[in-house]
């Protein structure tokens, strides 16, 4: 218990198997408050499964998953975990396509999530200001009244990051944020995530090595559901095991 203190996310000895296949095998990871962590690793290393476990979609067979040093996440469901302050961005951008950009953010905005609270909700001036701020941050202000379906792939990624910000989480889990982005968009995304990590914890899963380099954070390399190497990007990418199993050559 004491080990979990002063951590934002504490995974200890987590294992989960699907039909006998060990997707996560005795995985231990720590993320500290306002720390950014990049996770790399080959396909099938268990990166997305790890996110599923943290956000309550998958229950681990064994191990501890603690949030903010005190909350056991293995006992809660997705909605409860989201309301604790964990935001998740999916690998494939998932925005609500038949809603406008503005409505997407309004729904995500941190507010009471009850049925009647939502039924009688009217945006206060404060909410409008906050949504406008987020729209500026993710550069979608000029498209606020458009349906999310009309956005380009990169813009959808940004809208989803905006929705994460609107949730005002303590911990952001970001799965492949720059897939399908242009180089300049990738650069902007790295800048944005670094900015976010000043006040919150961020976990980024990414394949794009130049993007991970730009993040300049601690790196964990996963393989076969366990930590293969950990450290700065240079340390990790110089590790012979990582070269053999992931980077190749």
């Amino acid at each position: 218990m004491s080990k979990a203190q002063d951590t934002m996310l504490y995974l200890n000895g987590v294992s989960v198997a699907f039909d006998g296949f060990k997707a996560i095998n005795n995985l231990s990871i720590i993320v500290r408050p306002t720390e950014m962590l990049a996770i790399i690793g080959p396909n099938g290393a268990g990166k997305t499964t790890m996110m599923d476990i943290i956000t309550g979609k998958t229950r681990p067979d064994a191990g501890e998953v603690m949030f903010d040093g005190r909350t056991d996440l293995t006992k809660l469901d997705e909605a409860a975990i989201a309301n604790l302050g964990i935001g998740r961005k999916f690998q494939k951008p998932t925005v609500f396509e038949s809603h406008t950009v503005w409505d997407n953010l309004e729904m995500a905005l941190k507010k009471p999530r009850g049925i009647f609270a939502a039924l009688f909700y009217t945006a206060s001036d404060e909410d409008v200001t906050r949504i406008t701020e987020i729209l500026e941050t993710v550069r979608l202000l000029h498209r606020k009244d458009e349906f999310a379906a009309n956005l380009s792939h990169g813009q959808k990624q940004w809208l989803e990051i905006g929705m994460l910000l609107a949730q005002d989480p303590k911990l952001l889990l970001v799965d492949e944020p720059v897939a399908g982005m242009t180089d300049s968009e990738t650069e902007e995304t790295a800048k944005l995530l670094r900015e976010i990590a000043k006040t919150r914890s961020v976990v980024v899963v990414e394949h794009d090595m130049s993007f991970v380099r730009e993040l300049g954070s601690r790196v964990v390399c996963l393989a076969e559901g366990a930590v293969l190497a950990e450290g700065s990007l240079d340390q990790v990418s110089a590790n012979p095991v990582v070269i053999e199993r992931y980077l190749g050559r």
């Binding site: 956000t55 989201a82 609500f96 409505d103 999530r113 939502a118």
Partner: peptide, 26 residues
């Protein structure tokens, strides 16, 4: 209402709605 928008969100992307903290079953 916002609830109506959440209903449409449930229709289009149920698990996403759950991950932003709405209780889809309610």
């Amino acid at each position: 209402s916002k609830l109506g928008k959440v209903m449409v969100a449930v229709r289009d992307a149920e698990s996403r709605t759950r991950f932003i903290g709405y209780r889809v079953e309610y």
